[in-house]
């Protein structure tokens, strides 16, 4: 596991070299900024970060994060650098985790740029610091899960387009569709759907509540997808 910092460092610096990173940052800030303004700067609007962080952010991230993660493994397969990487004294888990932490750190930088919203809100009224913090904790957890899913699909294919589309679909299903079905149904189906829905696990964070069950849900599903990614990487070499 000692190689993880080395791999993370390389991954992070590569993110900043690539134009995709800057495009992603721009798209993210423009979209979240539009939501922020249209929601808060209307007459009678609430001076709160709850809407932007609680309702819109997870949706924006579904589209933004797969774009950051799509090249992580696919690019290594396509260019053949996976061969030099895996013949260095590095194991499969280190490779996946190094890339995961690189992407997560980049995402945290992206999140840090949204600190401007609570600052703006605090100019217009008292800021609920506890709520803001729990929103950030929730967003970090949701983002980590999305990144793990993105890495999993990236490790399945050498084609970045396939990787990004599969991540979109899976994340969209578990963020929007499952939540929607849960609302429409009654009884057991409703309970099951609510447990699977990313949004319903996230909602408590946006109410200022850091519930350990939701933390466990996000951390364990993140680990699950990272584990799958390691297994896929192993499997590809065994073929």
């Amino acid at each position: 596991m000692r190689n993880i910092p080395t791999l993370t460092h390389r991954e992070l610096s590569t993110q900043f070299y690539s134009p995709i990173a800057y495009i992603v940052i721009t798209i993210f800030l423009v979209i979240s900024g539009i939501f922020f303004i249209s929601d808060n700067f209307t007459s009678g609007g609430e001076a709160s970060v709850r809407d932007i962080f609680g309702n819109y952010m997870p949706l924006i991230l579904v589209f933004i994060l797969p774009m950051l993660t799509m090249r992580l493994m696919s690019e290594e397969y396509r260019s053949g650098t996976i061969e030099t990487l895996m013949t260095a004294p590095v194991n499969d888990a280190e490779v996946i985790l190094g890339k995961f932490f690189g992407a997560v750190l980049f995402y945290f930088v992206l999140l840090a740029s949204t600190l401007v919203y609570p600052i703006v809100v605090s100019l217009y009224g008292p800021l609920d610091v506890g709520l803001t913090l729990s929103c950030y904790v929730g967003l970090m957890l949701v983002g980590s899960l999305y990144i793990a899913v993105g890495i999993f699909f990236s490790s399945c294919t050498r084609n970045q387009v396939i990787a990004v589309l599969c991540s979109f679909v899976l994340l969209a299903v578990f963020t929007f569709l499952v939540h929607y079905i849960g609302q429409q149904q009654e009884g057991v189906v409703r309970v099951v759907m609510q447990h699977l829905s990313i949004i319903s696990h996230f909602q408590d964070f946006s109410r200022g509540l850091v519930d350990i069950t939701h933390v466990v849900f996000f951390l364990s599903s993140t680990c699950l997808f990272l584990f799958f990614a390691v297994k896929i990487l192993e499997f590809r070499r065994w073929r």
């Binding site: 080395t6 260019s79 053949g80 650098t81 061969e83 030099t84 013949t87 260095a88």
Partner: peptide, 30 residues
């Protein structure tokens, strides 16, 4: 893997890195 060096066909490398950076990264892995 600690005792071998390997140059695959067509020498795959990370195009965005500088040569010195790349070599330093590889040395760190060792």
């Amino acid at each position: 893997r600690r005792k071998i060096g390997y140059l695959p066909e067509n020498a795959p490398l990370y195009p965005e890195m500088r040569a010195r950076e790349y070599l330093d990264f590889r040395a760190k892995l060792h």
